[in-house]
């Protein structure tokens, strides 16, 4: 059975990755599975300066999903390079570094600092709903998306993935802007903005009010958007949004994703990424699919 995929020129041993912000810098899940079993690990977003993140409450369960409002807490790119890069290098898998910023200059500086051995790809986070400066503000305007993509493309020596927000009127328009800007790949979807309210206190449950919705609840939205973006642009896609099982992963591949990322599922089941990989193998065996590439983008509309 062939599981390897080529994602924007990077050879992944299989199409299963972890999603940014759900597995730190790869350290915390060591007791549960070997990162080397996965195609790639996406690191927690890195910003130019350390970020403390938002006040608690930062998380709340919702029907078939959850809201998060972490706020990009991270030690900053310099601390990462000094203290975590060596560890990350030895994980035995491809490493995608996710970068965040409050200004274009911030993003450029982080991207430049990550032109180091051990980082295989850059994921440009212009879709975080949980910060007031940067993040989503960059990811919802096609002109800005094109500009930031082309500026980062000039600074980075790595293949560039642009992470798209579902919180837009037409995600294909944003996808085309990233393509025009020179993106090598796209990842989607980031979380959908949502809110939980405590009717007794008449307050939002999250301290910041709203947060990002993830988990099985968003899976149909993700599949719809991946399918639409796959038809709109000529770029490989990293698909994510509520993947809980190997069959879910297969659906994302069929919709047009070259690889998929697992996030929320790992909160419920720490071993989810490797379990999902095993289930994908089982699905392929049952369907008589010898090469995972034979699933990608094979959605039939008639």
């Amino acid at each position: 059975m062939k599981l390897a995929v080529n994602f924007a020129g990077v050879e992944l041993k299989n199409p299963i990755a972890t999603a940014s912000g759900t597995c730190g810098f790869g350290m915390e899940y060591l007791p549960y599975y070997k990162a080397s079993e996965l195609g790639a690990v996406t690191l927690k977003a890195l910003s130019i300066r350390p970020k403390a993140g938002n006040a608690v409450v930062r998380i709340a369960e919702t029907p078939s999903g959850m809201l998060n409002s972490i706020g990009l807490q991270n030690p900053g790119v310099d601390s990462f390079l000094e203290n975590k890069l060596e560890f990350v290098k030895n994980l035995g898998t491809k490493i995608i570094a996710n970068i965040a910023g409050e200004s274009m200059e911030d993003y450029e500086a982080v991207a430049e600092k990550l032109n180091v051995d051990g980082i295989d790809m850059i994921e440009l986070n212009i879709s975080c709903p949980n910060v007031s400066d940067g993040g989503l503000a960059f990811g919802t305007n096609p002109k800005i998306v094109e500009e930031i993509t082309s500026r980062i493309k000039k600074k980075t020596e790595k293949p560039l993935i642009v992470k798209l927000s579902p919180n837009v009127t037409d995600i294909t328009e944003i996808a085309r802007a990233a393509e025009s800007g020179g993106a090598d790949a796209l990842s989607l979807i980031n979380t959908l903005m949502g809110m939980r309210i405590d009717a007794h206190t008449r307050r939002p449950v999250l301290s910041r009010g709203s947060g990002g919705l993830s988990g099985p609840a968003v899976k149909p939205v993700a599949l719809h958007m991946i399918s639409a973006v796959h038809r709109a642009v000529d770029l490989p896609l990293l698909g994510m949004g509520g993947i809980m099982t190997g069959r879910d992963a297969a659906e994302f591949l069929i919709a047009g994703a070259t690889a998929v990322a697992i996030g929320t599922a790992a909160f419920a089941d720490p071993k989810a990424p490797v379990r999902i990989l095993g289930e994908l193998r089982e699905f392929m065996a049952a369907e008589g699919v010898e090469d995972v590439n034979d699933l990608i983008g094979t959605l039939k509309f008639n």
Partner: peptide, 14 residues
Amino acid sequence: ERMGCGVGACLACV
């Protein structure tokens, strides 16, 4: 504190 992953990865329960 309200927790997410329970393994130290998600940074919900700081």
